[in-house]
Design a protein around this nucleic acid. Structure first.
Length: 487
RNA sequence: GGGGCUGUAGGGUAGCAUGGUCCAUCCUAGCUGCUUGGGGUGCAGUUGACCUGAGUUCAAAUCUCAGCAGCCCCA
């Protein structure tokens, strides 16, 4: 099937999970027919979106002094086992390589589920003195996790296109600064995706295996369930000790490095699909749309060549202006081109026909609002920029509206149920005394899981506190928690 | 982790209960030709499939078992 063509189905976003599968299918972002569970093929169009997201991440990492590296895919079992909590966390979901040719391997190798245990033995060689710090690295590679639950394109897969930053610092304070920088990077990347998000510190039982604490970055889908965009981890010396990452300080003493990591994945593609898409298909934010403009020529008898010449000139000019453009020159009717590119989420379709050639105009069709307007050909530069900016603004404000109505406060179970009884099923903000029994009872009463402790804002990294009471036992507490449901 | 359902051309389906009617139905997409062209043109012709393996049987798309894959529900 040619990449340009889209299939016909009836999309219904009110049935979110089916809608999601259908929209991935018809927009053909990946080919799910590869015969291994949870391993899909990236199509040219889907891969381009991922690459543009990667480019956004690379730009931000490079600008903040990170260096891109690439570590091997295989990790010896012996290295993997050095940090106890880490093993426990990943044990059940690693793929093992146990044979080379016909020979059993002496030391089994595993496909990285994440790269701590691949990188840190080498970090211990790289980090010698305080002059080597901070060490800020990242890589964009595939990781493997043996998911036993049902897989879902981009959201739960076994081969994951993954970004991971790994840093080493001289002390805890420097590592904290890194985490704040990570939040700032997240903020800029999320802006490209037009996705607002929620920052929470995960509860202890839900933190990354081996971390001191984990900050989760979640966006909210229209179904008011969360989808994780990324996570940021503070390790302190937890990995530096078993992997012996030490440096000699200016005090001539040897110290363990303090480490952080930051992860994001192809799940962001899932989030963009889920948050922005509608019953006509995808809606892509301009920053990551493979084509920001698609030109649809409207031919007429005897004027085909003139129209095509005009279309080619228009294409050339838009490219020169720095936009990603596609001229759809297929010999099919214009109407079917509209449908095809609508499904694929192209922000702006530009019609150019004989009338436009005569009048010196173009017709802009916006994907997000489904509106058309006529613009002067002479104003192309300004109009093109304005259109993309307007679309970004519209997508962001729609997504913000989902989050704004997605979190509600409740100090008692009754109050929470009051919210939930009206068909609203979002995130509940409440107080928690930190007692585990209360946590379990809370999750059960609300039929939701702990998301974590919300952060006050991106810049400070501080938690949001308030004078409240535990939802279950009523004891006074300053701790504020979010409970919700996730994909 | 437990349970249920499903697997037929690129996609969607009929056939399966009661094995033979099926070198397998229809829609769509593909290909060839003509026609058409500001939101899914129309006509004619045409290519293409029973998930894999084992079993039962004179005979398997259809029954049995296993594997693989997909979907759903519950914990």
């Amino acid at each position: 099937m040619a990449d340009e063509e889209a299939k016909k189905v009836v999309l219904d976003k009110s049935d979110f999970l089916n809608w999601y599968n259908d929209v991935v299918d018809v927009s053909f972002l990946c080919d799910k027919r590869y015969p291994i569970k949870g391993m899909n093929v990236w199509t040219p169009y889907g891969w381009k979106i991922m690459q543009l997201m990667d480019a956004s991440i690379r730009r931000e990492c490079d600008a903040t002094g990170h260096q891109e590296v690439c570590f091997p895919l295989l990790i010896p079992k012996t290295e993997f086992q050095k940090e106890a909590d880490h093993i426990k966390g990943f044990d059940s979901e690693v793929f093992w390589v146990t044979k080379g040719g016909n020979n059993e391997l002496d030391i089994p190798l595993l496909l990285r589920p994440t790269s701590e245990t691949a990188m840190y033995p080498i970090f211990s060689l790289w980090v010698r003195s305080h002059n080597d710090l901070p060490l800020k690295t990242y890589q964009i590679v595939n990781v493997f996790r043996y998911e036993t639950k049902m897989t879902r394109a981009f959201i739960r897969v076994r081969e994951i296109h993954f970004f991971e930053a790994h840093t080493c610092h001289k002390d805890a304070e420097d590592a904290e600064m890194q985490i704040r920088e990570d939040c700032a990077i997240m903020d800029r990347v999320a802006r490209d995706l037009c996705l607002p998000y929620i920052l929470t510190r995960r509860p202890d039982w839900d933190k990354f295996a081996g971390a001191v604490y984990t900050i989760g970055v979640d966006t909210l889908l229209p179904s008011r369930r969360t989808l994780q965009l990324g996570s940021i981890h503070q390790y302190h010396e937890n990995f530096a000790r078993p992997y012996d990452i030490k440096y000699e300080g200016s005090d001539k003493q040897h110290h363990y490095a303090h480490q952080t990591t930051y992860g994001m994945s192809e799940r962001m593609v899932g989030a963009v699909i889920g948050v922005h898409g509608d019953n006509k298909g995808l809606i892509l934010p301009p920053a990551i749309a493979p084509f920001q403009f698609v030109i649809i020529p409207i031919p007429a008898k005897g004027k085909l060549e003139q129209v095509m010449d005009g279309a080619r000139a228009l294409e050339k000019e838009l490219i020169a202006l720095g936009h990603r453009v596609h001229l759809d020159a297929r010999d099919v009717r214009p109407g079917s081109k509209h449908y095809d590119w609508e499904i694929k989420g192209v922000p702006v379709r530009i019609e150019l026909g004989p009338r436009d050639l005569e009048n010196g105009t173009l017709v802009f069709a916006r994907r997000d609002l489904s509106t058309k307007r006529t613009v002067k050909r002479a104003d192309l530069k300004e109009e093109a920029l304005k259109e993309l900016k307007d679309i970004e603004g519209e997508l962001l404000s729609r997504a913000k509206a989902i989050i704004d109505d997605g979190i509600r406060r409740a100090s008692t179970v009754e109050e929470a149920k009051e919210h939930l009884s009206k068909g609203w099923d979002g995130i509940i903000q409440t107080g928690w005394c930190t007692d585990m029994d209360c946590a379990a009872e809370m999750e059960k009463a609300l039929d939701k899981a702990f998301l974590g402790y919300p952060l006050k804002d991106v810049a400070s990294g501080e938690l949001l506190f308030s004078d409240g009471q535990c939802m279950i036992c009523g004891k006074p507490t300053k701790d504020v928690v979010y409970l919700g449901r996730s994909y």
